[in-house]
Design a protein around this nucleic acid. Structure first.
Length: 850
RNA sequence: GCCCGCUUGGUGGAAUCGGUAGACACGACAGACUUAAAAUCUGUUGGCUUUACGGCCGUGCUGGUUCGAGUCCGGCAGCGGGCACCA
């Protein structure tokens, strides 16, 4: 078989589409459709995860275009960030240079995959054009009381004199220095996302086209909870420690109080050496919640004793503990070991009493010598709460606390304000000036953008902006005195929180975007990206949209109407005889064993895992495109798994796709020479009649599957139709009409997935068409041909399949019952008896119960 | 640790509403073509059992609801994602 020349075809059509401007989104037109894939970080080269993400988006974009939508499908670069600085340090290059080279390489890779991007809208967040607008947004947030400054804790590497990301903290030590980290308080910029906590929570109900799991994760992240602030006092009443709890009903089970190391009471005891040492030890834990929660529980008795408002005579100890979150609630909680797992662990460690206050319901089991009881039940050993359910007891306990003036009910959110300050060079500078006389002064709009200096060095530890000899030295815009610039830059999530608006008017200079045009395109109709962004990026973008609305930039509230979270791309892992990871391309398969391609030594294959550089189980998209072409790569990533599930990369599967596309191409080559003049559909034979029906059914199935994004199923249907069409003979005059119609339809159904070869074949079948295949529209199924007049029913006896019955569609129940008991397969089990019951489900199944 | 998912043949997956488990593909095996190989084409392919017809078992494990469970409910195990400075 002659292979089709993808090298020529793909280049040819990519050039044609670009010349014709086929994929330019046209502003202010009806029937808009905005499809967007998550903003990529320019890490250097495209990986398979990108290929999958962008192919899904492109298939949707092309499908919608063929349905006649005015599609907006832009792309850009999340170009600020930590990896550029790491590269600068490790390879002695400049972050800007490294980033721009990466963008250049990745752009040409994207182009070689034939994605239908409107390249005129490309944006890079590190471009002055972009971050100028970002500084403007920041100043507006400041004006509208959405940005403020406060102290917060960071991971500090004492050797490198740098702030570390949680990712850079390994086992409590700096990843480069290996020195135990410390917590350090810094004054930083925050955005008031908590102002919108309730609104962000309520908005989730409108997101009907988001995966339920993402909505749930966001709901839990916002973490609205009802509870109480309760004042514990020292017996002499000289000191009060307020605590927050969502379990006020277990107050009679309290046997200790735990406070965070950062709590003012803890800090006030630093003069005691053992307490100071413990606080210092807690500081090595860093700021990540995971570290706090998984650390071995540890505490130290402060010597302070307090009493609960309900039991003024029972003193309980106050401990400083390493597992208390300082920023949540009041940084202090009471411990009820009988009914909280963490408190139980702590109490067991320090021999603190365990008071049961909930009596389990009959079916629940409890063993307080082994673990806390967390189930449902009724209150006991709790004076006025005895006998109540948990819910009743919560309410009554808080009422009582309020009447004693010992606290009050509160609604809290787990959500904290968003810290956007980063002590790094490669980010958007915060447009603020500090003046000794005037304080914090916003940079006047006319002075924007605050550009990053180019002459920087990473020789010294810390932020190069701080070390720069002149950059931060400015005159105060307000009084003219000597002042200094803010040297912090913005979190890169800031850039990705509004880029989808910028795409609407990517070169707009008067503001972040033209409100009228942006509102006509937004919200994004379909957003596609990794589930790892389920909370942070997506929540920040939802917050930003509300904040921008508050500042008058938009009328939109929810940025993303529908969301799809695609799975990861995985590959088998390989290790050589020495146990070192190996690239798949260096491994050969020999029978059922694997060997080293060069040395022929045996190789052990491990489980399929997410492709990662560290395990070397990566396949470079570039190689696939070189060897098989973009269409094959696109087809494979769409065919093997549903988009939201993980995809296993398989070289054999790729070859299978290559064979299929060649068969398809060959079939068309064999047929086109017979396409002469008008060739009416001849459906007089059984074969052509059933194939004709199959064509229409396939249109229907594929359309339904595309609408639901079940691309792998759509492709299975396409394959089935292909198998039927490849079996027809172009030499047979009776079959040629159906074959021609079938191939034409097949090409249209394939066009969103394999656009290059489809466009080429379209030319050959339609012969000098005036439109591209997408402009020719999407095929429509004839409803009359979708109906079948007979159905095959499964016949069960006691739930087990024993026979089949072919019968007219919608046949009446009585006639089915009569026919079914006569069937040989049923008679065999009936043995002359009458069935107890016959259950008939129309057009599906019959169950004979005996 | 907490929150959220996932688990179906040798492999990826299909089964849309509780109704015939395994569509479609990969791999494997057999055959055709070929001096031969590659490529291509045709056929078989969940497991056990039976000469055959057939029978039994089977959707991570376990218990339940139902005429009927991959699908619903309870418990358990394994794997993955997120946990606020990676993006």
């Amino acid at each position: 078989m002659e292979k089709y020349n993808f090298r020529i075809i793909e280049k040819k059509w990519q050039a044609f589409w670009e010349k014709e401007g086929l994929f330019a989104g046209k502003d202010n037109r009806e029937k808009k459709y905005y499809v967007l894939e998550m903003l990529p970080y320019p890490s250097g080269r495209l990986h398979m995860g990108h290929v999958r993400n962008y192919t899904i988006g492109d298939v949707i974009a092309r499908y919608k275009k063929s349905l006649g939508f005015n599609v907006l499908h832009p792309i850009g670069w999340d170009a600020f960030g930590l990896p550029a600085e790491n590269a600068a340090i490790e390879r002695n290059t400049h972050p800007a240079h490294w980033t721009r080279e990466n963008i250049h390489a990745m752009r040409s890779q994207l182009q070689s995959l034939g994605f239908s991007y409107d390249w005129d809208r490309e944006v890079s967040t590190c471009d002055e054009e972009y971050y100028l607008q970002e500084q403007r947004i920041f100043l507006d947030f400041l004006k509208h009381d959405l940005a403020y400054r406060k102290e917060s804790t960071v991971n500090w590497d004492p050797l490198e004199q740098t702030v570390l990301a949680n990712e850079q903290v390994v086992d409590g030590c700096g990843w480069r220095s290996g020195v135990p980290i410390e917590k350090k308080k810094l004054s930083q910029w925050f955005l008031k996302i908590t102002d919108f906590a309730e609104d962000l929570l309520n908005g989730l109900d409108q997101l009907k086209e988001w995966p339920e799991k993402v909505v749930t994760m966001q709901r839990n992240w916002i973490g609205k909870s009802f509870g109480a602030n309760i004042h514990f006092k020292t017996p002499d009443g000289s000191m009060t420690i307020p605590i927050f709890t969502t379990c006020p009903h277990t107050l009679f089970g309290a046997s200790f109080l735990v406070i965070a190391a950062e709590h003012p009471v803890s800090q006030s005891l630093k003069n005691k050496p053992e307490i100071a040492a413990f606080i210092a030890e807690c500081a090595h834990l860093g700021t990540s919640e995971k570290a706090l929660e998984t650390v071995e529980k540890k505490g130290i008795d402060t010597g302070i004793r307090v009493v609960s408002p309900f039991e003024p005579d029972r003193e309980i100890p106050v401990y400083i503990a390493n597992y208390v979150v300082a920023d949540y609630g009041t940084g202090a909680v009471f411990g009820c070991p009988a009914h909280d797992a963490r408190d139980f662990e702590f109490a067991t460690l320090y021999n603190l009493p365990i008071h049961q206050v909930i009596e389990p319901l009959a079916h629940e089991s409890m063993d307080l010598s082994k673990e806390a009881f967390l189930g449902d039940g009724h209150m006991i050993h709790s004076q006025f709460l005895n006998g109540l359910t948990i819910e009743e007891a919560k309410k009554k306990a808080i009422d009582q606390i309020e009447s004693l003036s010992a606290g009050h009910r509160v609604t809290t959110y787990r959500l904290r304000d968003w810290g956007v300050s980063r002590q790094r060079y490669w980010g958007c500078p915060v447009p603020i000036i500090y003046c000794d006389a005037c304080g914090t002064v916003p940079v006047p709009l006319g002075d924007l953008p605050i550009r990053l200096p180019e002459d920087i060095s990473f020789d010294k530890p810390g932020n190069p902006l701080v070390h720069h000899s002149t950059w931060s030295k400015v005159d105060c815009p307000s009084c003219g005195a000597k002042a200094r610039r803010e040297t912090d830059t913005l979190d890169t999530f800031f850039e990705s929180s509004w880029y989808f608006f910028r795409y609407c008017t990517p070169h707009y200079a008067k503001g972040p975007f033209d409100a009228k045009i942006a509102d006509s395109w937004c919200p994004v109709d379909q957003y596609i990206g990794g589930v790892e962004h389920a909370v942070l990026h997506l929540l920040y973008a939802r917050f930003f949209t509300r904040a921008l609305k508050k500042c008058g930039y938009t009328t939109i509230e929810e940025p993303f109407k529908a969301l799809m979270t695609q799975g990861m791309v995985c590959h088998e892992t390989y290790k050589d005889a020495a146990g070192k990871w190996m690239f798949p391309e260096d491994v050969q398969k020999q029978g059922s064993n694997y060997i080293h391609a060069l040395t022929k030594d045996p190789v052990t294959a491990g489980p399929s895992e997410k492709m990662s550089k560290s395990k070397k189980n990566v396949v470079d998209p570039e190689h696939i495109i070189q060897e098989y072409g973009a269409d094959v790569a696109r087809f494979f990533v769409m065919s093997d798994s549903p988009p939201e599930k993980d995809l296993d990369w398989s070289d054999a599967g790729v070859q299978g796709v290559w064979r299929y596309l060649n068969r398809f191409h060959q079939c068309v080559q064999n047929a086109v020479s017979h396409f002469t003049g008008p060739q009416p559909l001849d459906v007089s034979s059984r074969k052509t009649e059933s194939t004709h029906r199959l064509i229409h059914k396939t249109i229907q199935w594929v359309t339904d599957d595309f609408e639901r994004y079940h691309f792998n199923k759509a492709i299975a249907r396409i394959r089935e139709l292909s198998n039927a069409l490849f079996a027809l003979s172009p030499e047979n005059p009776q079959e040629i009409g159906v074959l021609r119609f079938g191939l034409q339809t097949l090409t249209q159904l394939l066009a969103p997935i394999v656009p290059h070869v489809a466009e080429e074949i379209w030319q050959e079948i339609v012969q000098n068409p005036s439109k591209t295949i997408l402009e020719a529209g999407w095929p429509k199924a004839d409803p009359a041909l979708l109906q079948e007049d007979t159905v095959v029913l499964g016949v069960q006896v006691n739930g087990k399949l024993r026979a089949e019955l072919t019968i007219a569609k919608d046949a009446p129940q009585v006639s089915i019952e009569a026919l079914v008991i006569e069937l040989e397969g049923v008679q065999k089990y009936l043995e002359g008896a009458t069935p107890k019951k016959i259950i008939v489900i129309q057009n599906r199944i019959v169950n004979v119960v005996i």
